[in-house]
């Protein structure tokens, strides 16, 4: 249930991990239950969701107000695309997020732009569009909660949430 936050939870304190779990639950509600009942497997299994989240990296970050992909982001997404191509039974939902330094509705639109940029890149790498969807959370689901650039930079993100879906 807490797929996309597991990676960061491992790195953070226990307290933060708790809130991240809560957030993951909420997010899954919002995303209509994507994530499914299955486990995420072991990070040592290269076909597992855990491997995708931790070893490949499930997220890319953006500059203020931007939705263009940095070269670092592009290499992460290229690896994501490779993984999706070799694990064809998974679907991916790309969540777009913004930091809190913006108005609510603009940030929703900005998050959609970011999610769309990631989706387009994955498609350009050969992932079938039918396996990809997007959603924007704007500034509604911050990952980090401080009010300075250290946190903002982590919140301006697009997260690829993979789930076992195809063939179900």
């Amino acid at each position: 249930m807490t797929l996309r936050f597991r990676a960061s939870a491992l790195l953070l304190s226990a307290a933060l991990a708790l809130s991240a779990c809560a957030q993951g639950n909420l997010s899954n509600d919002g995303a209509g239950g994507i994530g499914g009942p299955g486990g995420i497997g072991s990070a040592s299994d290269p076909t597992s969701i855990a491997f995708f989240n931790q070893s490949i990296g499930d997220r890319v970050l953006f500059a203020v107000d931007q939705s263009t992909l940095s070269s670092e982001a592009q290499s992460i997404l290229a690896a994501q695309a490779q993984w999706l191509l070799s694990n064809g039974e998974y679907l991916a939902l790309v969540e777009g997020h913004a930091d809190e330094q913006g108005t609510r509705e603009y940030n929703l639109a900005l998050g959609a732009r970011r999610a769309s940029a990631v989706r387009d890149y994955l498609v350009s790498q050969g992932v079938p569009a039918s396996r990809l969807s997007t959603v924007s959370y704007g500034k509604e689901r911050p990952l980090e909660i401080c009010s300075n650039e250290a946190c903002y930079s982590q919140n301006r993100r697009a997260v690829t949430v993979v789930s076992a879906g195809a063939g179900v």
Partner: peptide, 8 residues
């Protein structure tokens, strides 16, 4: 309600 990263 709730913490900043898990608002309801």
């Amino acid at each position: 309600e709730g913490p900043k990263n898990a608002r309801l």
